[in-house]
Every structure is written in C-alpha cells, then in structure tokens.
Amino acid sequence: MSGNTLTDRYVHEVVRRIPADQRADVADELRTTIADTADARGAADPEAAERAVLTEMGDPIRLAAKYADRPLALIGPELYPAYVRLLKLLLTTVLPIVVAVLVVIEVLDSNDVGAAIGSAIGGILTVGAQMIAWLTVVFALIDRSRHRETAVAEVDQWSPDDLPELRQTEKRDSGAALAIGWNALVLALIVWQHTAAPYRAGNDRIEVLDPALWSGWIWPILVGLAGVVTLEVIRFATRTCTMLHAGLYAVAELLVTLPLAWILSQHKFFNPAFLADVNNGWTVPDAVYTIAVIAVLLVSGSEIVSRFREARAQS
C-alpha cells in the first residue's frame, strides 16, 4: 500500500462516505477487487488498466451510496410534492408581504423611492434566499430521519382511510403556511429591530423593544419561535400530527408565551425611550398590558389544545 496510487485515492473517497465500522473491510475488499480486475485486463500496461477499471467503477459518491444503501437525493419523491407546495406558498404569499413591509418602512424612514426600490430588491433576494435555504434544510433532515425509520421498520400500512378530506387539507395547508410565515416574520422582525434599530427618535436610532431583553428573556422566545416554525414545516411535510409532535409544539409554544406574558406583565416589552417618544408623555394604562397578557395566553393555549386534538384524532 504505497498510499497515493489512483486506487488508494479512489478507495478513500468511497469509504469515507460509509459507516465507520465497515470502512476497513470495504476498503480491503475494494482494493483486492480493483487489483484483480486490473490484472485480468492487461499485464502490458498496469496503469492504463487501473485507470480503466476505476472509470468503469464510476463516481465514488455513487458507489458509496450503494454500499451505505442510502438515497442519492436531498429530498426524496415522498416529500418532494409537499416541499414544492410549501415553497410556492411561502414565495408567493409570505415573501411579498415581508417585502411590502420592508418597502413601507423604508419609505417612511427615508422618503426616497430609489432607496425603497433598493430595499425591495434586497428584501426579495435575502428573505427569499433565507426561505428557500431553511425550508430545504428542514425537509432534507425530515427525509433523512424518515429514510432511516422506514429502512428499519419497513413501511407502515397505508389504507384509503388515510386519505385526507379535500377541504380539510387545503385549509390545513394554508393554515400551516400562514403559521410558518407569521412566526418566521415575527422572528425576523425581532432580530431586525435589534440589529437595524429602525426607529428614529430625534437624532438617535433606537430599538422598538426593550434592549435589556437581549440579556435575558428574548432568547427563549427566539428559540421557541424557531421551534414552532420547524415543527409547522414538519407537520406540513408529513401531514401528520403525532402526540410527540403535539408535545414538542406545546414546549416551543410555551417557550414563547410564558416569557412574553411575563415581560408584558412587568411592562418591560417596549424600549422606554421608544415609548416616551411615541406617546409624548402619555403613559400606557396598565389595562392594556393586562389585556395583552390574557390575549397571548389564550391564543397560545388554544393553539396547543387544537394540536393535541388533531394528534388524538389521528392516533
């Protein structure tokens, strides 16, 4: 084994893509097989024979996929339709809304048409790219976990009873897309108002939300929102809602709701400087915060309950 022949390089490329416990054995077998084949081809020019054999064996990535019994696709045929449908929904409904919001803010902020067009184009490119990228990552992960499950437990029996009601699917699809878009939008807005500090008070640019939140309560909220978005994408892709899913959803939702309710009840939601500038000396009555807390708790409570209902109906 000299270490840097074509065969060595080829074998290395194959085995580094298969499970570690099989690597040494597959490598040894592949090496002898390539040598056997090359010997049979031509003793006259061993190097040309080696090259011909490797060409015939083909792309190491393909061969490794055969050894590992793994699909050569990021998103397999089972999930592909759901992926395309959700991507279409996001790009045709949520993206325009986000871009419109960006443009309105830019116009209010600078009153400049050129800048507004610039932020529209920038918004389409960056927000659109983010949507495509994250959706693809989540679907690829679902596909990977699914493939492993079905490989182990074979496929679970499908019956015509599993056919979803037409109306219901449509409603649920758009509902899920709306929830994904809404939660992602809130997540993006929270981060954006922190990094861009868009509000202008006098000569200062300030954040809308209390900056003190970033050393504490905002983090569980961001994690929870990301969790909700991920779980909604999974629900949309697999079209099922298991008890586990409902449980995880409840955790993510509570991660958002409880800190949010606490922040609101402590009147620590908005940036005091922002409030002072907006309200011009008028203070927000406590009742507004109380109502906000109750609304937040009610909405998320009903979401969690409906998720568990759906899970129970499907089990």
Binding site: Q22, V26, E29, L30, T33, T37, E56, M57, G58, R62, L63, K66, Y67, D69
Partner: peptide, 12 residues
C-alpha cells in the same frame, strides 16, 4: 452485472 452493483449487493 457491473462490479459497482455486484460488490455492494454481496454486502447487503
């Protein structure tokens, strides 16, 4: 049958 089909098949 090609080698790149047969050898992984044997392992399976």
């Amino acid at each position: 049958v090609d080698g790149n089909t047969l050898y992984p098949l044997l392992r399976r």
